[in-house]
Amino acid sequence: MTISDVDLAHLARAVELAREALDDGDEPYGSVLVDAAGQVRFEDRNRVKDGDETRHPELEIARWSANHLTPAERAASTVYTSGEHCPMCAAAHAWVGLGRIVYATSSAQTGAWLAEWGIPAAPVAPLPITTVAPGIPVDGPVPELADEVRELQRRRFGL
């Protein structure tokens, strides 16, 4: 796994979006879609607080890219995200043909933190991206951002 300074900058933006989500009363997740030329094409944050649990930023990126990018542009793009894609988002990513995924923290890390804090597990199994979509190149977790993401998750639960 090679994480460049460019990767770290885009991941930092994803974590910033996660913080924005948390500050707005939502779950702290954020994602950024970057094209092959290094241009940010779309970004979003979690928007599940109103009851639609599918409003994950990775799913929104998949939907947006399916409507705005060619298959070749999608395949050459990278999605940066504060937390590893859930199975729903990993499947959407694969179905629309997006390229590389880089995530700051893994589902396993998040699960361990929740267990440590006595928080019940999510209703969906935290499968690794590579189990759901084995053909997608994936890099992560990125240790430099783990403490910051952990703190966002801790704040999410008022701990």
Rank of each mutant, 00 (worst) to 15 (best):
A133W: 07
P28K: 12
E151D: 15
R19L: 12
V138K: 10
R74P: 03
E148C: 02
L17P: 04
G118C: 11
L17D: 02
V132D: 00
V15S: 04
R47H: 14
D52W: 10
E84W: 06
H85W: 10
P87M: 11
W113S: 00
P141W: 06
T2Q: 08
A104Q: 07
R100M: 05
R150W: 08
A121C: 03
A21L: 11
G99I: 04
A72L: 13
S82E: 04
R55G: 01
G135I: 01
D35E: 02
F157E: 01
Y80V: 12
S4H: 09
G30D: 00
A92L: 08
L33N: 04
W113H: 02
N67C: 05
A36R: 15
I119M: 04
V96Q: 11
A92V: 02
E144T: 05
A94C: 02
R74Y: 05
E60S: 12
W95K: 15
Q39I: 03
E144G: 00
P137N: 08
V34D: 03
A104F: 05
V40Y: 05
T130Q: 12
D24Y: 03
L98S: 06
G25C: 06
L8K: 15
T110A: 13
E148M: 04
Y103D: 01
C89Q: 10
F157Q: 02
R55N: 14
E53I: 13
G140I: 08
A75L: 12
L59D: 00
E16A: 15
A12I: 00
A18M: 08
T130A: 13
A12K: 14
V132I: 15
A12Y: 02
Q109N: 02
L152P: 07
